[in-house]
């Protein structure tokens, strides 16, 4: 017992040294586009990509008292693959066939039993000679969002990527509806990328309000920019004309900071109006809108809302919330 504890802690520490990306796959095109972003962000030999598919735990009560596992076991005995596996394998193919990663991988399979489910948690780990790892993980959890957040607890990640495709939406507890993305973005202790109509090559738009948090976000974006070579732009929003000077100042500080880190800024501008509307409007031109998370606690966020989450919820394109 004590040994495994030490191992876990050790593993955790070692993982902290690496750049780890968690990509949530649900079979939608959007999630695969998010995956190609991950492939680019994690080319460095210190980086790992984890592909995750979360399946809600079966509710035997809904199926009239006969556990769904009876049907699933029957499917397995026919040699049929369960839904998530196909999606994950497609993701792996996409990663390996791309230019970003080399083709030589070693395979290792692990399985953890989860009570009441024939499948449990399954993990296939691939490593290449440079030391990069790709993990395919099939997870069972009460809800999709809690599955993703549990996965974070297992090993810290630097970035969680999930697709936000409307086609799965609807009132039912479907996969990746906005609620899942929102929940993950709200609770995850790391940066979250919500891919939405993702078109690469238009650069990142950083939104700053001059706060310490925003500056941290700017610095981190510079890191990412160095990594994947994307173009950066900076904007700030003033609530009215009086604040305009302050907004301009915030932009200037951010641009100077980026320059000192060796990153060129393509565009720097200010807008006047409602912050989240202006950000969404200006953000249309870019691949990503990058916002810092608010420092509000759960309670404050619950009652006040925050610009970051409003942007995430209403923007038509991809949003990164950095932490």
């Amino acid at each position: 017992m004590a040994d495994t504890y030490v191992d876990q802690k050790d593993l955790f520490e070692r993982r902290k040294e690496r750049y780890r990306v968690l990509v949530c796959i649900d079979g939608s095109d959007e999630s695969y586009r998010g995956l190609s972003y991950a492939a680019q962000a994690a080319t460095n030999k210190n980086s790992d990509i984890v592909l995750l598919y979360v399946r809600p735990i079966d509710q035997g009560l809904r199926s009239g008292g006969l556990q769904v596992r009876v049907a699933r076991e029957n499917m397995l005995s026919w040699g049929l693959e369960l839904p998530g596996i196909t999606y994950l394998k497609r993701g792996l193919e996409q990663l390996i066939s791309g230019d970003e990663l080399s083709a030589d991988w070693h395979e290792k399979i692990t399985h953890t039993d989860i009570d009441g489910d024939p499948l449990g948690d399954n993990k296939i780990e691939y490593t290449n000679e440079v030391g990069q790892t790709i993990v395919l993980k099939l997870k069972t959890a009460a809800t999709i969002a809690s599955g993703i957040l549990d996965q974070y607890e297992l090993g810290p990640y630097d970035l969680i990527i999930l697709g936000d495709s409307g086609s799965w939406g609807g009132w039912a507890k479907s996969l990746w509806d906005p609620a899942v993305a929102e929940k993950v973005a709200m609770h995850a202790p790391c940066s979250v990328l919500v891919a939405r109509g993702l078109e690469r090559g238009h650069g990142h738009l950083l939104c700053t309000d001059g706060s310490e948090r925003a500056m941290r976000m700017v610095k981190r974006s510079a890191t990412v920019s160095n990594r994947i070579g994307s173009k950066l732009s900076v904007m700030a929003v003033a609530r009215d004309n009086e604040d305009k000077a302050e907004a301009q100042e915030n932009v200037d500080i951010a641009v100077a900071e980026l320059k000192s880190l060796g990153v060129d800024v393509v565009n720097a501008f200010t807008r006047v109006g409602n912050p989240f509307e202006e950000i969404i409007h200006a953000g249309k031109e870019y691949s990503f809108i990058v916002v810092g998370s608010t420092g509000k606690t759960g309670l404050q966020r619950f009652f006040l809302g925050s610009v970051s989450f409003k942007v995430m919820e209403h923007a038509k394109n991809s949003v990164i919330i950095t932490r």
């Binding site: 809904r62 199926s63 009239g64 008292g65 769904v68 699933r72 609807g170 479907s174």
Partner: peptide, 19 residues
């Protein structure tokens, strides 16, 4: 709905249908 009848729930669990 998926939850309406047992048969619908079981078939939906195959992952081939949408809500």
């Amino acid at each position: 709905t998926v939850v309406g009848t047992p048969a619908c729930t079981i078939v939906y669990a195959s992952g081939y249908l949408k809500t």
